[in-house]
């Protein structure tokens, strides 16, 4: 228990110090709320409009979870298929990398134009953003299994399916989870962008509305919630990883 606290203390202290400096600066320089609100004002504002804020938060959670799950599924399937069919990998992989260089700020309005203001373009945007790190992580994991184990499997005459199912796939799981963690953070921010671009609900919409109305405390409250969402999703995936990958010797504090 003692060692756990030793790890939690330093970042916690830094966080508290940061908040104090922030609050202190706002107080000392007499900054206006619409210009830069202090953390206390942000929390106060969040509490006072909580029912509305929660409605928007719930919409963002729904959109994020839907987009992330579909994106993860797409990523896993694409990664697996590209690994199994080498020829497809060679031809499609560069195209995938290329697709990742399209700025989502350009892609978003196009998707809205093609698919309207409903759920579909937003979900598509999140899928497009988060399938890529997942499929890349998956492919790297699948392609890099231990050569000694691979030699053993081949020597005993294991077929392609046995090798995939028993050697490559389990080996790829830790890689897959790294990909999922990255994609989790991406999916929350893409949901915000999607809502910003065309929506009547969600934190992205709420942020846009508040910032146009010079209501900085509300923007900050929405940012705070976004960070919390992102970190929660990350945490859930880390927990799932610990629960699924049980064969590794536990690292200290890992």
């Amino acid at each position: 228990m003692g060692s756990k606290w030793a790890k939690v203390w330093p970042p916690l202290m830094a966080m508290i110090a940061f908040l104090l400096v922030w609050q202190g600066a706002v107080f000392f320089f007499r900054l206006e709320k619409w210009f830069l609100p202090g953390p206390a004002a942000v929390v106060q504002e969040a509490i006072s409009i909580w029912p509305r804020l929660w409605e928007h938060t719930a919409a963002t959670i729904r959109l994020t979870l839907l987009g992330f799950s579909l994106g993860a599924l797409t990523g896993i399937i694409v990664g697996g298929l590209l690994h199994l069919v080498k020829r497809v990998k060679l031809s499609v992989y560069p195209l995938l990398v290329l697709s990742q260089n399209i700025p989502i700020i350009a892609l978003g309005p196009l998707l809205v134009m093609w698919f309207g203001f409903g759920l579909l373009p937003k979900v598509l945007l999140i899928i497009l953003v988060c399938f890529f790190p997942i499929s890349v992580a998956m492919m790297i994991g699948l392609a890099n299994s231990d050569p000694r184990l691979m030699n053993y499997m081949q020597m005993i005459g294991a077929n392609k399916w046995h090798i995939f199912r028993r050697l490559e796939l389990p080996h790829a799981l830790p890689y897959l989870f790294s990909g999922l963690k990255i994609a989790a953070a991406y999916s929350v921010t893409s949901a915000i962008v999607a809502e910003w671009l065309g929506s009547s609900k969600g934190l992205g919409y709420f942020m846009q509305l508040s910032s146009k109305g010079f209501m900085a405390p509300r923007v900050f409250a929405a940012v705070l919630i976004t960070i919390t969402l992102s970190m929660s999703l990350f945490g859930i995936i880390a927990l799932a990883e610990r629960w699924i990958i049980r064969w590794q010797p536990r690292k200290e504090g890992g």
Binding site: Y152, M155, I156, G157, R166
Partner: peptide, 18 residues
């Protein structure tokens, strides 16, 4: 042809997830 022998390598080569 593969699949005709039982094999024991120098390193135990046990699959760590099994």
């Amino acid at each position: 042809q593969r699949g005709h022998i039982a094999y024991m390598p120098q390193q135990a080569s046990l699959l760590p997830w099994l």
